[in-house]
């Protein structure tokens, strides 16, 4: 909440955008790992890291940083496991954000998982 100056309206927009972005970025990262595309691994992991950073979520950020560095260093050893961990941490963060907004007066998550 500090990051949005305590404003629920802005937080709701940010959470909605986070859902939208991670819906797009996670599959793109997974595809990049499968294709051994180091540039896209680094770039997508970097964007996920930046998105998670907005909500002060160290486990999700760390998991994304690990994959970003793998892409940067051109070594994807253990990338599938790292991806699974990242996916798990992002899902935890989504649930925490959803719960937080449900418990916050006059709010609902407008950007709930999009197809």
């Amino acid at each position: 909440m500090d990051r949005v100056g305590g404003r629920v309206d802005l937080l709701k927009q940010m959470v909605g955008l986070f859902f939208k972005e991670t819906d797009k970025l996670l599959p793109a990262l997974h595809t990049a790992i499968a294709q051994q595309d180091m540039v896209k691994v680094q770039r997508n992991a970097h964007s996920i890291k930046g998105s998670a950073s907005c909500f002060a979520a160290p486990p999700a950020v760390s998991a994304a940083v690990r994959l970003e560095f793998m892409g940067r260093d051109g070594d994807l050893t253990g990338a599938e496991d790292a991806y699974s961990l990242l996916e798990l941490e992002i899902e935890r963060l989504r649930q925490a954000l959803t719960t937080y907004l449900q418990d916050t007066p006059h709010s609902s998550v407008s950007g709930k998982k999009q197809d």
């Binding site: 990051r3 949005v4 802005l10 927009q13 940010m14 955008l17 986070f18 939208k20 972005e21 770039r43 970097h46 964007s47 930046g50 998105s51 950073s53 907005c54």
Partner: peptide, 14 residues
């Protein structure tokens, strides 16, 4: 200018 959509949105909205 930012590659992270959330940061772009927050800065732009403010």
């Amino acid at each position: 200018v930012d590659d992270v959509a959330l940061d772009r949105h927050l800065a732009g909205t403010l």
